[in-house]
Write a protein that binds this DNA or RNA. Structure first.
Length: 406
RNA sequence: CGGGGUGUAGUAUACCGGUAGUACGCAUGCUUUGGGAGCAUGUAGACCGGGUUCAAUUCCCGGCACCCCGACCA
């Protein structure tokens, strides 16, 4: 991709209406555009990152048997009346049509997925079922903040599982937990992400959150020094000991909740009278779990934990491009770009007629992991630099390709 | 939802009760090219409604938007 043709440009100044470093860089670098508080357009660079995050999640959820579907955002009021959440969920967006009929804009999809699965599952033979989707959620946050960290419309992966027994739910729950760690590992935040015991809110007594430690976090967690699990504030007040190992020595940290998993059991299957016939001819209530990851929030979290004063530093798996090729002093880098593309690598090619300083500054801001500079000064060689490291290495183009493509 | 703050060009900002200035951007031309180049010319602005006043971008009231603290939060 030629950088001169890339839609959206970098800007020099930080936006005045953003506080979070992730939002500042995303806007300056032209990854996102703010439409209103908590609502953002994804521009080409931002969308590329989002799609890569999405694909990693898709692969790992598929690996635990998830089947991808796509449910509507626009939902009937009756379903929300059945679960009682039409009245109790304060951040539910309610919309009216011209004849005053009311609808919900989905903040989550239990009210859609439970009747859906019920239609197709009537016997124990039809369970378990695991379905998931990537979907924009709507939540009436009275105070959106932190850019993509807390939006009113945001992309989420939500997985729902349905089981005959609680034991089966427990087992699957653990498989999803492991899948989540693989996801956060590939996205590059595993080391700073803690499995955290939390209260279940309106869902269940307890739930588990995946909390990534960063000063930008809104949540406070307590990391157990003995077992490296964590508990959140409510659990600390309640138990004052580690819910994993019983230890009582904690380190307090600020963290962002990038994912969460719940054992809903029959909380939402029961209102829809969703039960199945077991092999003994008796009806059993269906056990349910739900599992979420906020994609925009995860993307912003990566920046919060990986940046410097010049800009973002993307991990290779989710960088908008892995390679940024910059040509200087009128020496064309077309050949090396073509060589990379032949090998299936997408590159961002900076062939703009602007000063070297501007190119370097933009490259640092955008944060693509590998930078190759083609110039007269380097002669037949090229300069290779990794965004996260300081040193620049001079090498033959072939060596550079070997190093980067691995 | 409670409390506070701010609304001036595409962006960041300045001044002002009497027709708005700077920087960056953008456009054009020339010169430049290893860490956001230089010169010249040009482009573009007071959130909305009401009030006070001879006169309001400026003061007052209301609305709206955005930001911050708290509450809330799958």
């Amino acid at each position: 991709m030629k950088q001169s043709e890339l839609f959206a440009k970098t800007v020099r100044t930080f936006p005045k209406d953003e506080e979070a470093i992730s939002a500042k860089f995303l806007i300056r670098a032209g990854f996102v555009d703010k439409l209103m508080a908590g609502v953002y357009t994804l521009l080409p660079l931002g969308l590329r990152v989002m799609k890569k995050v999405e694909q990693i999640i898709r692969e790992e959820i598929n690996a635990v048997g998830g089947q991808e579907i796509f449910m509507p955002s626009f939902q009937p009021k009756e379903n929300w009346m059945k679960t009682g959440r039409w009245e109790t969920m304060t951040d539910l967006y309610k919309v009216k049509d011209s004849s005053d009929r009311e609808f919900a804009l989905g903040p989550t999809h239990e009210e859609v997925v439970v009747p859906l699965i019920k239609r197709f599952a009537s016997s124990y033979k039809d369970l378990p079922v695991y379905v998931y989707q990537f979907q924009n959620k709507f939540r009436m946050e009275l105070r959106s903040k932190g850019g993509l960290l807390r939006g009113r419309e945001f992309m989420m992966k939500d997985l729902y599982s349905f089981h005959l027994t609680e034991g089966d739910l427990d087992e699957y729950y653990n498989r999803v937990k492991e899948a989540y760690f693989k996801i956060f590992d590939r996205i590059g935040i595993r080391k700073k992400t803690y499995f955290t015991f939390a209260s279940g809110g309106t869902f269940s007594k307890y739930s588990h959150e995946f909390q990534t430690v960063t000063p930008a976090g809104e949540d406070t967690i307590y990391v157990c020094s003995r077992c490296s699990l964590a508990i959140n504030k409510e659990i600390k007040n309640e138990l004052n000991k580690c819910a994993g190992c019983g230890g009582d020595d904690f380190k307090e940290e600020k963290a962002i909740e990038v994912g969460n998993i719940f054992k809903l059991k029959d909380k939402y299957t029961q209102p829809f009278d969703f039960s199945v016939m077991d092999d003994d001819g008796k009806k059993r209530p269906v056990m349910m779990g739900c599992y979420g990851i906020g994609l925009g929030r995860t993307m912003a979290t990566v920046i919060e934990v990986s940046n410097d004063e010049r800009g973002m530093i993307w991990p290779e798996e989710i960088a908008p491009f892995r390679v940024h090729i910059i040509e200087l002093d009128g020496k064309s880098a077309k050949k090396i770009c073509a060589d990379f593309e032949k090998r299936g690598e997408e590159i961002l090619y900076d062939e703009r007629g602007v000063s070297p300083g501007e190119k370097f500054a933009d490259a640092d801001l955008i944060g693509i992991p590998w930078r190759i500079v083609v110039s007269k000064k380097a002669g037949s060689k090229v300069e290779v630099k990794n965004r996260a490291k300081a040193q620049i290495k001079l090498m033959e183009p072939k060596q550079a390709m070997k190093l980067i493509l691995k």
